[in-house]
Each structure stands twice: as C-alpha cells, then as structure tokens.
C-alpha cells in the first residue's frame, strides 16, 4: 500500500516537473504567434508577422553570424584539442592525470560572471583586445570542459586494443584510428560537439565582458532588444532557436541514439 502511494507521489512529481520545465517554452512559442504587440491570454488569433520582423531587427544578421562563427570555431577547436588532451588523461599514463582532468573541467563549476571578469582583466593585462579573437578564446574556455568531460568518459570505455586489432587486419596506425576509433567514439564526439555548440551559442555572462559596440553576440543583442522594444519579435526568434535545437537533438538521436549519447547503453 505504502509503495503504491510512494510511486503515485513520484509520478505526480515527474509530471509536474516536466510541465514546470516545458511551460515557459510553450508560452514563448504561443506569444510568438500573438496578433497584437502585447501578449495576452487567451489568444484572439494567430499571426506570423513577428517572424517576418526578425530579419529587420537592428544588427540581427551580424550578431547571428558572429554567434554561429564563434560557436562553430570554438566547438571545432575544442573537439580536436579536448580529444587529444582526453587521450593523454585516459590513456597516456600522464603523471597526475586526475589533477589535469579536474583542471580541464573546472570552468564548468565557475560562475560565468567570474570567468568573464577574469578573462577581461587577463586579456587587458597582456594587451590582447581584438574583440573577435578574445571572444573565440573566451568561448574555448566555455566549450573545452564540455568536450574534455565527455571525451574522457568516452575514452575511458574505449578499448585501445581495437586499434591494434585493426592494424593486424591491414590498417596503418592512422587508418586504424580513422576506421575504428573515430566511429566507435562517434556518439561521444556528437554529444560533446552538441553541448559545446549550444553552450557557446547561448552564452551571455562571459561574452558581455568582451563584446564591444560592433561585436555583439546574439544573446547580448537579444537582451538589448528586450530593453528597447519588448514586442513578440523576440519570442519569435526564441522559438526559432528552440526549434533549431530540437531538430538538432532529434537528428542526433536518429544518428546515434540519445540513449548512447547519455552513456546509459552497453
């Protein structure tokens, strides 16, 4: 009897939490189709005109391009460097590997604001002020921990004998890495890349310290819009970003399976 009651409590909690987490997203999506500049419930109709206004937002395209560039470059660099570092930690008998592993993921535990201020002062101290480059380096600090953490976990389960097996079957060493190690670690690469990209793309607290008038990432630009003109255009933009993320996740699931990405399978 008690266990039954306990299970029901847990069910209710699970459903309530899911609603709590999804509700704001639903509200944003609904607001984006609002026919009036002021969002009111119940909706009196639906309109897509706010979507049309997105592209006419002041400075929207440069900011989107900048955010995509920074997210793509920082993810690509992190994937290469983070994987190599993870190999050293998971495999290379590196002295003090545990310390390096902790150091690599430590930015995850640091508040973004602290990180932002630290980076700003650090860059100023060495006279490194080019906005685009400082943003990229700062975002590497954000994305590297995601890649390092995921790849260390993935490599810990990777049997390096697989490469030897490939070599005895006719592969060169690089060939074995490409034909066996990379595909076997594909789920890890995908999840690392995904989280890295998303972490960079929506980062605000670090970027705000390094942006200048001409170099503003999309999240900074969006906050500026909301201060200037709080109409549903921003809701439309948010909905698009949300849809893009969902598509990314669904495609990833189709490719490798979310259960493998979460690391819960075999």
């Amino acid at each position: 009897m008690m266990t039954r009651a306990a299970i029901i409590v847990c069910w209710v909690m699970a459903i309530a939490l899911a609603l709590f987490l999804i509700a704001p997203l639903l509200v944003i999506a609904a607001a984006s189709f609002s026919p009036t500049p002021v969002f009111d419930l119940p909706l009196t109709g639906a309109s897509t005109r706010w979507y049309g206004k997105i592209s006419r937002l002041d400075g929207f395209w440069p900011s989107l391009l900048l955010s995509l560039q920074i997210a793509l470059f920082s993810t690509a660099i992190s994937l290469v460097c983070g994987t190599l570092a993870a190999i050293a930690i998971a495999r290379g008998k590196l002295p003090g590997a545990g310390i390096f592993a902790t150091a690599l993921v430590s930015p995850l535990m640091m508040p973004g604001l602290v990180l932002g201020i630290a980076l700003l002062q650090g860059f100023r101290a060495i006279g490194f002020t080019a906005p685009w480059a400082t943003l990229l380096v700062a975002h590497l600090v954000i994305t590297l921990p995601y890649v390092a953490r995921t790849m260390i976990a993935g490599l810990a389960r990777f049997d390096f004998t697989l490469i030897e097996a490939a070599r005895t079957l006719g592969c060169t060493y690089p060939g074995g890495v490409l034909r066996v190690m990379v595909p076997a670690l594909a789920p890890s690469f995908l999840i690392a890349g995904l989280f890295s990209f998303l972490a960079s793309f929506d980062n605000y607290p670090v970027s705000i310290f390094l942006a200048d008038v001409r170099t503003k990432t999309l999240p900074i630009r969006m906050l500026q819009y909301i201060e200037e003109a709080p109409d549903p255009t921003l809701a439309a933009l948010s909905t698009l970003i949300l849809a893009g993320t969902v598509i990314l996740l669904v495609v990833s699931d189709r490719v490798v399976g979310l259960h493998r990405m979460a690391g819960t399978s075999d």
Binding site: R167, G175, R179
Partner: peptide, 30 residues
C-alpha cells in the same frame, strides 16, 4: 598491417560500431 597475421585478442577487440559480418569483413575491406 603488412605481416598477414591474424590475432584473436583476450578482450576480442571487436568493433562495436560494426555488425558481426562487418567485423569479419573488415580485414578484406581494408
């Protein structure tokens, strides 16, 4: 890779991303 030896490892070292047939075909494909 040029010795033409076949090795069966203690851990088997089967390629997890390939099927059974894919594993067996690997050496010939290479």
């Amino acid at each position: 890779h040029k010795r033409n030896v076949g090795v069966v490892f203690q851990s088997y070292a089967l390629f997890p991303h390939l099927t059974v047939a894919g594993n067996v075909a690997f050496g010939l494909k290479v």
